[in-house]
C-alpha cells in the first residue's frame, strides 16, 4: 500500500512504488486528493486542468498519474525514498491568491484534550490567532 498525504487527509492507496509517478485508480484519486478525472480534464471545484497532448503520461487504463498532474499544476509533490509515502502539497500561486483574498484559510486542529476546533466555529467573533512553541 502507498500512503497518500495532503494537508488535510491521509489515505492508503494501491500504487506501484515509485518516486516519480503515482498511478492511482480514478476513484482513489478523488478520495485521496479531492481532484477528479473528467472528460474535460483534472478537476476540483470550478477548476479544470486539461489533460496535455502527451496524455499517456497522465491517464492510462482507468488510472491517473497524480504526480504528473501535480507537476503540471506547479504544486509540490514529495515522495519517500521507496516511493511508498507521498505528500501532495498546495501551490504557491493558489496559496498567495487565498492570502490576498483576505478570507482567512480555514483549518481544524485539536486542543490538548483531543477535541477538534475549526476556525469557522468562531464566526461572529473576532479571533486573535497567535502562535507559540516550546522550542
Amino acid at each position: 500500500m502507498t500512503i497518500v498525504l495532503t494537508e488535510t487527509s491521509n489515505s492508503e492507496c494501491v500504487a506501484a512504488p515509485s518516486t516519480t509517478d503515482l498511478w492511482l485508480d480514478a476513484d482513489a484519486v478523488t478520495a485521496a486528493t479531492g481532484w477528479t478525472l473528467k472528460p474535460e480534464g483534472f478537476c476540483k471545484d470550478d477548476i479544470c486542468v486539461p489533460t496535455p497532448a502527451d496524455a499517456e503520461n497522465y491517464v492510462a487504463d482507468g488510472k491517473v498519474n497524480v504526480a504528473s498532474f501535480w507537476r503540471l499544476m506547479d504544486r509540490p509533490a514529495a515522495a519517500s525514498k521507496d516511493g511508498d509515502v507521498w505528500f501532495l502539497g498546495e501551490g504557491a500561486t493558489e496559496r498567495n491568491d487565498a492570502l490576498l483574498s483576505l478570507e482567512a484559510p480555514d483549518f481544524t486542529l485539536p486542543d490538548f484534550s483531543g477535541k477538534l476546533h475549526s476556525l469557522t466555529d468562531f464566526r461572529r467573533q473576532r479571533v486573535l490567532l497567535i502562535t507559540w512553541a516550546s522550542w
Partner: peptide
Amino acid sequence: QAVWIDEQGRV
C-alpha cells in the same frame, strides 16, 4: 506570529 481575523472570517 499573529493574524487578526474579524467576525466574518476576514483578515
